[in-house]
Simulated scan of single mutants.
Amino acid sequence: MNFEKIEEAYNLLLTNTHLLQSHLATNFYDALIEQNSIYLDQKTDLKELLVNQQKLKALELSREEWRRAYQFILMKAAQTEPLQANHQFTPDAIGFILTFLIDQLGDKEELDLLEIGSGTGNLAETIVNNSSKKIDYLGLELDDLLIDLAASIAHVVDARISFVQGDAVRPQVLKESDFIISDLPIGYYPDDQIASRYQVASSDEHTYAHHLLMEQSLKYLKPRGYAIFLAPNQLLTSPQSPLLKEWLKKEAQILAMISLPESIFASSNQAKTIFVLRKQEKKPLTPFVYPLQDLQKQEEIVKFSENFQKWRKDSEI
């Protein structure tokens, strides 16, 4: 990976986006979407923009270099036009852990993967770019802006990923997948009538959206498939957790719980744990429970990897 090329691409993308932001009198994200469109079709009256587009093409970036450049652009945008917490992209360190889990658990060379709440598409490209498997990826996202942004970036980098728009809590016509992943959006789901169709529904208040999404996700999972969720540390101790645990007893097995260092989150209240689930099976299983202390230390990651592989072998998964 060439970091000088990534920095040059970042600067060109930033310049172009600012030019379009002023020219179109729009927000940063819509300007970035327009920049991506012009990169592809080269249709604009702004000569400086066209010159910069040619410079971008001449860099011949790899998909991963493109991803890093766009990641820096979105980090820059967040300084002046921050996305809400549920729309911010999953940190790379977590994305690489999820990729490792997919590579370890996937028993085929080609895997179908559905992401619930695909956001800006950064996690999608992290996995597709770095997995040892051939991933057939589909992202489901409700937000108009995020869908347009993710799709425009995917077209520029020629990524093998696609997106559909929809409310993941409502039933969707989707094929079953080998893997379901989600950095679960946290909060209450506002439509009590829709929520009441679920086993995890609360009769006293709005139901947690992340509980509903977990239950819904397993409906799209193939037999022997895996669901990997980033969920709050308090998932199994929150006020509505008895409803979730009752559903888990009937429908799902927790295979792994991997806690993440609080230091990578904005606050301890936002800290999350990786939960790996599969549909309920009769075979008893001792879950893999592991506290990751520091994602920057290579020896820590190696130790985690070795422990997970040993557990997988011993558990005959």
Results as ranks from 00 to 15, higher is better:
residue 100 F to T: 03
residue 89 F to H: 14
residue 81 E to M: 03
residue 137 Y to G: 05
residue 133 K to L: 08
residue 94 I to L: 09
residue 49 L to D: 01
residue 50 L to F: 11
residue 25 A to C: 06
residue 28 F to V: 01
residue 92 D to M: 02
residue 59 L to Q: 08
residue 97 I to P: 00
residue 32 L to C: 09
residue 132 S to G: 02
residue 111 L to C: 08
residue 15 T to R: 13
residue 35 Q to P: 00
residue 131 S to F: 11
residue 70 Y to C: 02
residue 100 F to Q: 11
residue 135 I to R: 04
residue 123 L to T: 03
residue 124 A to I: 06
residue 90 T to W: 06
residue 118 S to F: 08
residue 52 N to K: 14
residue 18 H to F: 13
residue 74 L to I: 11
residue 96 F to W: 08
residue 23 H to Y: 14
residue 43 K to G: 00
residue 77 A to P: 00
residue 56 L to C: 06
residue 30 D to Y: 10
residue 118 S to A: 15
residue 87 H to I: 01
residue 29 Y to H: 11
residue 24 L to S: 06
residue 53 Q to N: 15
residue 33 I to F: 09
residue 118 S to W: 04
residue 138 L to Q: 13
residue 61 L to E: 03
residue 108 K to Q: 15
residue 111 L to E: 05
residue 97 I to G: 01
residue 105 L to P: 05
residue 45 D to V: 06
residue 97 I to N: 01
residue 31 A to C: 10
residue 68 R to D: 02
residue 20 L to N: 08
residue 67 R to N: 10
residue 138 L to E: 08
residue 120 T to Y: 01
residue 118 S to H: 05
residue 42 Q to W: 05
residue 21 Q to Y: 04
residue 91 P to A: 07
residue 71 Q to P: 00
residue 98 L to I: 15
residue 61 L to V: 04
residue 49 L to G: 01
residue 114 L to Q: 03
residue 19 L to V: 02
residue 113 L to R: 05
residue 76 K to M: 13
residue 46 L to R: 06
residue 124 A to H: 07
residue 85 A to H: 12
residue 53 Q to R: 09
residue 78 A to G: 10
residue 41 D to S: 11
residue 132 S to M: 02
residue 130 N to G: 02
residue 96 F to V: 04
residue 104 Q to P: 00
residue 100 F to P: 02
residue 104 Q to V: 13
residue 67 R to S: 07
residue 108 K to Y: 05
residue 106 G to S: 09
residue 67 R to F: 12
residue 137 Y to M: 08
residue 70 Y to A: 01
residue 26 T to E: 12
residue 125 E to M: 13
residue 112 D to Y: 07
residue 30 D to C: 01
residue 56 L to N: 04
residue 28 F to Q: 04
residue 50 L to T: 10
residue 47 K to Y: 11
residue 25 A to S: 15
residue 59 L to M: 11
residue 92 D to G: 03
residue 50 L to R: 12
residue 91 P to F: 06
residue 34 E to Y: 12
residue 132 S to W: 01
residue 73 I to G: 00
residue 41 D to Y: 03
residue 135 I to P: 01
residue 140 L to H: 09
residue 125 E to A: 10
residue 59 L to A: 12
residue 77 A to H: 10
residue 62 S to Q: 05
residue 18 H to N: 14
residue 117 G to P: 02
residue 114 L to R: 01
residue 58 A to R: 05
residue 128 V to D: 00
residue 114 L to E: 03
residue 130 N to L: 07
residue 115 E to G: 09
residue 44 T to W: 05
residue 46 L to D: 10
residue 132 S to D: 04
residue 41 D to P: 03
residue 95 G to N: 12
residue 79 Q to P: 07
residue 121 G to V: 07
residue 82 P to L: 04
residue 65 E to Y: 05
residue 94 I to W: 06
residue 108 K to C: 05
residue 20 L to I: 10
residue 107 D to F: 00
residue 63 R to M: 09
residue 41 D to M: 05
residue 93 A to I: 11
residue 52 N to E: 10
residue 129 N to E: 07
residue 74 L to T: 06
residue 132 S to F: 02
residue 37 S to N: 15
residue 102 I to T: 04
residue 117 G to H: 10
residue 130 N to T: 08
residue 76 K to E: 15
residue 84 Q to S: 14
residue 80 T to C: 00
residue 58 A to L: 04
residue 90 T to S: 08
residue 32 L to V: 05
residue 96 F to E: 13
residue 121 G to I: 08
residue 16 N to V: 05
residue 138 L to V: 14
